[in-house]
Design a protein around this nucleic acid. Structure first.
Lengths: 336, 336
DNA sequence: CTGAAAGCGCTAACAC
DNA sequence: GTGTTAGCGCTTTCAG
């Protein structure tokens, strides 16, 4: 089943058949109809490989995420997959396993596969730069969620300063006076921005340095941070006086485990300690109490990422573009 | 950068260069060395598209899962991606969104992309059959986790009878006398097998029909089922007398929401009601209390799935093969 | 063992 | 507007 067969059946040359199938206007309407007819009669489907080899387009987008076990990235993958499916394109997905070496090898794999573009959530600000920069010289690349400055690519993310600001204001309005921050070490732009935003919003009075707890975007870290806060309480004046009124978490994976640990120790959430978090993942909505969390418009962000890739394919020299979306605080039981 | 360049640099023909690069033995060792040398000097990488067009191998495997938001499927995707990456292959991932029409169109997309094989977790026993059957006539297909009998493909799964049996025995050993089942309607083989196994293990005494609750593999259903059980309690003799001692859940997503709802209603877990579940997902380990759950050897299953695809490529006519792995009950706080 | 030549299936110049 | 021809880059007959 090739173009030649269709062409023969329609009584035209392969070239004309190809043009008709591609919807080129410079084809006699009558011939075009015959071709289309023959094509559907024969159940013809153009060979994707041959077309790709010829046109240098694979209709495939590559995506590399730091870890597919993180529900936020899963949401991103889901959204991108949907956008691509809508335009008959496919997603080559790779998991970097939080390792910049793995990440580099996956990026290389995808470039070599000649994907039309690459969507990357970089593992780390420093160590991801080289691979990204190299890739961006071969094809359109957009960084999603996190940004590596050294790699001059397009970017789609959300405004972490606004998000964290909303968290702090919400907690204050709810009466919180003393607020802790449990986030990730600033090895990624999001972690760094959230930390900086938090620092900008509170002073030493509201949050002493001991309550700026930094680890990783993992459940283990959430648990460890909770234990650390609880230990501080025991050393204090007793009665939980040295526990913060509220905690801002850098991600739902952290918050879920942190809440679990606090509750296991008999600390009431939200009565004794209110919790706000980031990502608004399915995870956070399932727990007791469900998490108040900052939500990002993932679908719109996915659409924008794909749009930027398409745009850059057509305008390789265009200036680097950054799209930053406004997040929104979704209030739930953890601050009820 | 093409084979011709390498060949020229090594002073041989493209054919010989190609053979040397492919490791064919029928090449003069000296020439082979020159080719390899030239290749690495020039940083040559064979064009994946051209090779695929010629050899009819894309080194890409397609995978379709019912929903990428379900952590069990994420674990499966993660495992498959790892196995493929280890053999320099890539994963084309599609999400069927629990819809058999979407599933059919994604399978079609992947077949058309000429993936070397297809790993499918079918959405439903009936409605997924046609697409699977059609696909399996074009390329190697293996069904994972769930099985559609009408589609004669290889299969990799785990023994649900053994898993559910272990759940029931564990609960009995813990002193449970009255056990409810909250699972999914038997529209998938796993749901059906788990339900049947449960029925085979308990009698009307231990579990009246009212306690066989069937919905979907979703958190919403877990919540609804919990409410239903709580409503039954109110109608009973009071004091929670009409609540089961234990509940077997068909999946962690169900269990997590069910536990949340029970606890919100003041029911102690595991003291009043013990919970066991299925999948042993990251989700279940994060909750309070963490879930006792049936664990499947996902990595081994992924390896086996890829092995079956490879095997079938070499032996298209071989008999259909089913690999069933033994699951294992992981005991945690929800039955502590 | 090696090279020349063909061809995977498609589309894009180029001529008519 | 249409057909002829060439070629994307690779591998694999087929001769030698």
């Amino acid at each position: 089943m090739t173009v030649r067969d269709v062409a023969a059946a329609a009584g035209v040359s392969p070239a004309t058949a190809s043009r008709a199938l591609a919807g080129h206007t410079s084809v006699d309407p009558e011939l075009a109809r015959r071709v289309l007819r023959a094509s559907s009669d024969l159940g013809y489907r153009a060979n994707a490989l041959a077309r790709a080899l010829r046109t240098q387009r694979t209709d495939t987008i590559g995506m590399v995420v730091p870890s597919i076990s993180n529900p936020y990235f899963v949401a991103a993958v889901e959204a991108v997959e949907q956008v691509l499916a809508d335009s008959d394109r496919a997603l080559l997905l790779c998991d970097a396993r939080e390792d910049t070496d793995v990440e580099a090898s996956r990026i290389d794999l995808l470039v070599h596969r000649m994907v039309d573009g690459l969507i990357v959530v970089p593992v780390a600000t420093d160590a991801s730069a080289a691979a990204l920069e190299h890739a961006s010289r071969q094809l359109p690349v957009v960084q999603l969620d996190r940004f590596v400055d050294a790699a001059p690519t397009d970017f789609v993310g959300s405004d972490n300063a606004v998000g964290v600001g909303a968290c702090v204001q919400h907690l204050r309005a709810r009466g919180a006076r003393r607020i802790a921050f449990v986030g990730a070490r600033p090895t990624t732009s999001t972690a760094a921005e959230r930390l900086r935003a938090f620092r900008d919003h509170v002073d030493e009075q509201e949050c002493p340095d001991a309550w700026l707890l930094l680890g990783g975007f993992t459940a283990e870290w959430g648990r460890a941070a909770a234990r650390s806060l609880l230990a501080g309480m025991e050393g204090g004046t007793g009665g939980g006086a040295d526990l913060p009124d509220a905690i801002v978490c850098g991600a739902d994976v952290i918050a879920v485990a942190l809440v679990a640990e606090l509750r296991a120790a008999g600390v009431q959430v939200p009565e004794r300690v209110a919790i706000v978090s980031y990502d608004d993942s399915t995870l956070g909505a399932l727990t007791v109490p469900p998490l108040t969390s900052v939500s990002q418009p993932v679908d719109a962000m996915a659409r924008e990422a794909v749009r930027l890739l398409d745009h850059r394919r057509d305008h390789p020299g265009a200036a680097v573009h950054k799209s930053v979306f406004p997040p929104e605080l979704v209030v739930r039981g953890s601050t009820a």
